[in-house]
Every structure is written in structure tokens, then in C-alpha cells.
């Protein structure tokens, strides 16, 4: 996307060459339950400021549950979740969001009865420095054309762009993105890849749950491999080739 360079004059988050890494998210021994079923069995992971990490694994491995647990959307969880240095294991979802977290759910969660613009303006500002509506319409011109359409009329790709755009307006600097490329046409997947590259350049911290490894591999700094509610491995970008066996074991169907 040509916009990546053009927009990088905007906000910058985090020190560029800081030698000590700041922890945006530290999860320790996280357990989560859906009713009787034990979905996460003691997750440990740390994400540093400005990093893009993925959660990879098969369906049911616990990737979505991890994001939902961080967001406080799961009733029963234990362990520790430190968000930007604050313990949030007992916090409500709205308190967690206000620490500067933006969440893009798997089902996209566009409100059907609200127009595109109402959807875009809905999430309250959680931190200073969010992108302006004009800038977002520039990044996603399709949304500008459809600003008065009701949310229920959007195509899957438009819904996904809107779901991304609306959390970029809020000033959130830690983004939890769940399966943003699922079921979308290649041209839209490319577009989302460009947007993620741009966000990374601006210093956003991103946790990406992704099925499409081809999409995630070039973007991510590290990959957390999940299986049966555990994190079984963490693969650095530089180790992708030598750890191919790990991917084969845990990602192949």
C-alpha cells in the first residue's frame, strides 16, 4: 500500500531504538473456563511494545479464547494478565479496553442497526492519539463510500475493514486481532497486510490470531504455537526455516 509511507508522518508510539523492551502484555499461568470445560491450561506469554506476534494453531487450540480472556470476555479465568504494567485478571472488559486495548473479534462484530459511520464513531477514545476519521477513510476508501449504509448491508471485506478502522480511531496501541483474513478475497487480504505493516511501522503492538500462515509469516516478529490450551512453542521470525517441523506438527490438519 502506498499509504504506509504517506501515513508514517502521523503518530509514533514507543521509542524507536530503545534498548530495553517494554512489556505491553504479560500473561502468566492463565487458565480459562467455558462453563465446565477447561479451555486454557496455564498460558505463559509476553508481548513487547511495538511487536507483532501471532497465535497459531488448529481450531480449538485456544487462540481465540486467549484473546477473549485478555479482553475480560470470559467469565471464569485465573492466573495473571499484566496489561501495560497493570494486573487485569479481575477487571471488567470496559476497564481493560480503557488501558488502550483495541479488540477485533473473529465474527467482526459490526453492529447491524448502526450505519458505517456510527460503527466507526462508536468505540470511545481510550487513549490520546487515535487516527482521525478522515485518515481512516483515506486508508479504507470503501468505507467512505458506504458511510451511511447500515452495518448489515456490508460485504465481508467491508465489515473487516470497518472492524479494523473503528479500533484505530480510539487511540488503542495494543491491538488484539482475531482471524482478520478469514474468508476474504486475496485483494482484501493484501490490503489488510499493508495496513498491518503500516501499523507496525507506527509502533503498534499487535497480537494476531491467524489461520493463514502465508499471510502472517512475513509480518510477525514471533509466532506462539498453541495446542490443546497450551503454548507449545515460540518461534522467532529468524527461526522459521529450522523450526519447520514444529509448524508441520501443530498446524497441519
Amino acid at each position: 500500500m502506498s499509504g504506509a509511507g504517506k501515513h508514517s508522518a502521523g503518530i509514533e508510539i514507543g521509542g524507536e531504538h530503545s534498548s530495553e523492551k517494554i512489556e505491553d502484555l504479560r500473561i502468566t499461568d492463565l487458565h480459562a473456563f467455558y462453563g465446565e470445560s477447561h479451555a486454557l491450561h496455564g498460558i505463559d506469554m509476553t508481548v513487547y511494545q511495538g511487536e507483532l506476534v501471532t497465535l497459531l494453531g488448529r481450531n480449538g487450540a485456544g487462540r481465540t479464547t486467549t484473546l477473549r480472556a485478555v479482553m475480560g470476555l470470559i467469565g471464569s479465568r485465573s492466573g495473571s494478565i499484566m496489561l501495560k504494567g497493570k494486573e487485569v485478571i479481575k477487571a471488567s472488559a470496559h476497564e481493560i479496553a480503557r488501558l488502550g486495548v483495541g479488540y477485533c473479534p473473529e465474527e467482526r462484530g459490526i453492529f447491524a442497526s448502526l450505519s458505517v459511520e456510527e460503527n466507526l464513531l462508536l468505540p470511545p477514545h481510550v487513549a490520546p492519539g487515535g487516527m482521525s476519521v478522515e485518515e481512516l477513510y483515506e486508508i479504507f476508501p470503501n468505507l467512505a463510500e458506504r458511510r451511511t449504509s447500515p452495518g448489515m448491508r456490508l460485504s465481508g471485506g467491508e465489515q473487516q475493514m470497518l472492524a479494523m478502522a473503528r479500533i484505530l480511531r480510539t487511540g488503542a496501541t495494543l491491538l488484539l486481532l482475531d482471524e482478520i483474513t478469514e474468508g476474504l478475497a486475496p485483494v482484501i487480504v493484501d490490503k489488510l497486510g499493508d495496513v498491518l505493516t503500516m501499523l507496525k511501522e507506527r509502533g503498534f503492538t499487535i497480537v494476531l490470531v491467524e489461520q493463514n500462515f502465508q499471510f502472517a509469516a512475513p509480518l510477525a516478529d514471533r509466532h506462539f504455537i498453541m495446542d490443546h490450551g497450551h503454548i507449545v512453542d515460540c518461534v522467532l521470525q529468524s527461526e522459521l526455516q529450522e523450526k519447520q517441523a514444529v509448524f508441520d506438527e501443530y498446524l497441519s490438519v
Binding site: 479482553m71 475480560g72 470476555l73 471488567s92 472488559a93 470496559h94 481493560i96 479496553a97 480503557r98 479488540y103 473479534p105 462484530g109 453492529f111 447491524a112 442497526s113 448502526l114 462508536l122 468505540p123 470511545p124 481510550v126 479500533i167 480510539t170
Partner: peptide, 15 residues
């Protein structure tokens, strides 16, 4: 209106 549709997600936006 958003709360009528999906209160959990609305809360996850900080409301």
C-alpha cells in the same frame, strides 16, 4: 442500540 445487539463487544470497546 449497540448494547441491544451485542453488549459484550460494546463493553470490550470501553463502554
Amino acid at each position: 442500540r449497540a448494547g441491544t445487539e451485542n453488549p459484550k463487544l460494546l463493553q470490550a470497546f470501553g463502554v
